[in-house]
Amino acid sequence: MNRLLPVLVTTAVFLVGFIICSLQYPNFASTRVVANLLTDNAFLGIVAVGMTFVIISGGIDLSVGSVIGFTTVFLALAIERHDVPPLVAFALVLVICAAFGAAMGAAIQYFDLPPFIVTLAGLFLARGASFLMSTESIAINAPLYSDIAGYAIRLPGGGRLTIIALMMLAVFVAGGVLLHFTRFGTNVYALGGSRASTALMGVRVGATTIRIYMLSSVLAGLSGIVFTFYTSAGYSLSAVGVELDTIAAVVIGGTMLTGGYGFVFGTFVGVLIQGLIQTYITFDGSLSSWWTKIATGVLLFAFIAFQQLLVVLARRPPRRVAGVVPS
């Protein structure tokens, strides 16, 4: 119950926010708004799933924004300048991202370095590499892109559930299953509880750590692919600072920054809350879009304070030896 509380609160905040918006703007409660919410935040949602794993394991991945940027430039160059078929380019970039994440995970594990520093280096490396490839924005005009943009499931009420929104939902479902129903998922929680104990209990800590950062980078790569669907371009300055939005979404979603606790569903709601704030500002029309950042900041602070409160409450004396039957 106690562990579910943060997620429940986050969900309640989203629902209340949505209802308030709907009361203020009659057009708000529509499938159109909801579908757009999903489409506009698809890339953020996908990368946030990976970040959820990383943070639950007690780590952090600052490189994801740069990896998205790198991916968009790589795809644009490969498809437009080198005539690589888009699907091949996707596969290529995902392999590169996987290797990149594995390298970061290995550095964290085997050199015993803090994830913050390793992934900060990753942030600079990936961003630097994308500048090296190209500093200009390159439009992607491959037919696949217009096909994908043109296809969507039409919802009653005019909403269009796009491919990228569906991709995000699929990633969330897969991420939830992986985290909550597999040994790997339990190991991720275990790492967040205590690395030393996890190792003593015979879990292969190194392999798990490497897989966690691989997963995060691959999802960042997938997020980059989705980002190019969304913008039809590759640009080395895209997704700057997205790692911070991602961390915010994960934390607002109820995951403890100290590791060990959290749910994929919470992250989903965390992403939606950020999208909701943005949509509200778009509807209002007069507010500066920077209010999104301020609202996110306030929410983030409120949630961290709330989590700390839960931690303090949990520190009450443990239960007595309940139900012990000496025989």
């Binding site: 129903f181 040994r183 998922g185 339990t186 190991n187 967040g192 509880g193 209990m201 060990g260």
Partner: peptide, 24 residues
């Protein structure tokens, strides 16, 4: 040296949970 954040059952069977098709 167990994991305070996992359930008692998870602590007992960490790394050797019964699985079916890869799922715990």
């Amino acid at each position: 040296s167990l994991l305070p954040n996992l359930s008692v059952a998870q602590n007992l069977f960490l790394g050797r949970q019964p699985t079916r098709f890869g799922f715990v």
